[in-house]
Simulated assay, not measured.
Amino acid sequence: METGDEGAGTATGADVPSASTLDVDRTDPAYRAWLKDAVRKVQADANRSADTHLLRFPLPEAWGIDLYLKDESTHPTGSLKHRLARSLFLYGLCNGWIRPGKPVIEASSGSTAVSEAYFAALIGVPFIAVIPRTTSWEKQRLIEFHGGQCHLVDDPRTVYEVSARLAQETGGHYMDQFTYAERATDWRGNNNIAESIYQQLRLERNPCPAWIVATAGTGGTSATIARYVHYMQLDTLVCVADPENSVFFDGWVSGDDAVACERGSRIEGIGRPRVEPSFVPGAIDRMMKVPDAASIAAVRTLEAAIGRKAGGSTGTGLWSAFKIISEMVAAGRTGSVVTLICDPGDRYLDKYYSDAWLAEQGLDIAPYSATMETFLATGAWQG
């Protein structure tokens, strides 16, 4: 495992090309054969994969409200980011950015890097993940398990420039999920996550959800869901839940995409110190700021209710979904709400499921657990 350094300069993937794509002869039959085979392998992964489950969270029948969780942890690489990584690899290959023998480099908080390491191995190119040193050990292990290399940085804000620099030094391609997530995904359909949710809800009593709650790391998932809703002329509203030490909420409220935060998010996979280019604020209808302690309390509530451990980002979305449902109960409204299980909790046993880690971080989840206990018993939201 490479420790790395903090990098230099202010380059980003959007400002500086990863490397010249002229180092490959586009008319070379050997290159064309490699490209066709690489695209085939990535598409074949999707063809082999079944859809992810839509689970029901138990709520009192009298409320007339259904809560569903789209379980993205069942993808081959265990997270929502498997869809994104597949799209990014197809985008990079078809644009001629990913070339045989040249590394793919990504700035990540872990889960996207795990999935991208898998796809890099699938098509036979090296992979380097530039990740914060605080990234869970289990994610680091999974990146290396899939053949990737971890380049650790102390300051999460430097992952962009370090990735761009490594791409220039190696002649590789900086994938830059934070810029290209919303571009690489076909939001009109093509079995994206939004289309999948609506297909799975077809036979439910409330097939068109009142709300879908997402969280934002790149912003690509919320952009895909919200754009699909508008494109299909649906009545669903989209809420994005944002953790502490993240500026998506602040940028959405103020309309200022230059806001910044000095610290990295404790909820791995979501929350960013800057408003990422893939975040599309105009497409979404609501945002909530969620305390980290509430996110962690929510994943423990989830485990108690359905017997599944999930990562902290799942808790951020679930807390917001509960609050929205409490508002529906208070207003006498019925319907359905959907949120996501983003990744499995076994990646965070030393964090979100560790009381010692909570104490070290100064996080008290008891008040938030009590709020949810009251809510699930009465429908009322206190706090």
Rank of each mutant, 00 (worst) to 15 (best):
R56L: 14
V329T: 06
R133A: 05
P367F: 01
Y160Q: 14
I365D: 04
V275G: 12
E106R: 03
V104Q: 02
I324P: 02
D154I: 11
L203N: 15
G383Q: 12
I105S: 07
H53F: 12
M328K: 07
A113D: 00
G101R: 01
R133L: 03
L80K: 12
V114I: 11
R347C: 03
W381I: 07
G220R: 04
E244T: 11
R86H: 12
V253I: 12
R26H: 03
R165H: 10
V259A: 10
G271T: 03
R286Y: 08
L201F: 06
R263N: 07
A129S: 07
H230F: 06
V329W: 06
S109F: 01
P17Q: 00
I296L: 09
G124P: 07
A297T: 04
D23R: 05
V275K: 11
A321S: 14
W63E: 08
H230C: 03
G96S: 09
E2N: 09
S49T: 15
H53G: 13
S369T: 02
T314R: 05
T339C: 15
Y174T: 01
S320I: 02
R133S: 05
A38I: 02
S136G: 04
R272G: 13
T170N: 01
W97M: 13
Y352M: 12
G307N: 00
G282N: 14
G64S: 05
M232Q: 07
P76F: 02
A331V: 11
I267A: 12
T301P: 04
S136E: 02
V42H: 01
Y353T: 01
D235K: 14
E6D: 11
P281H: 01
F178C: 13
R32T: 03
G220N: 02
I105T: 05
W63H: 06
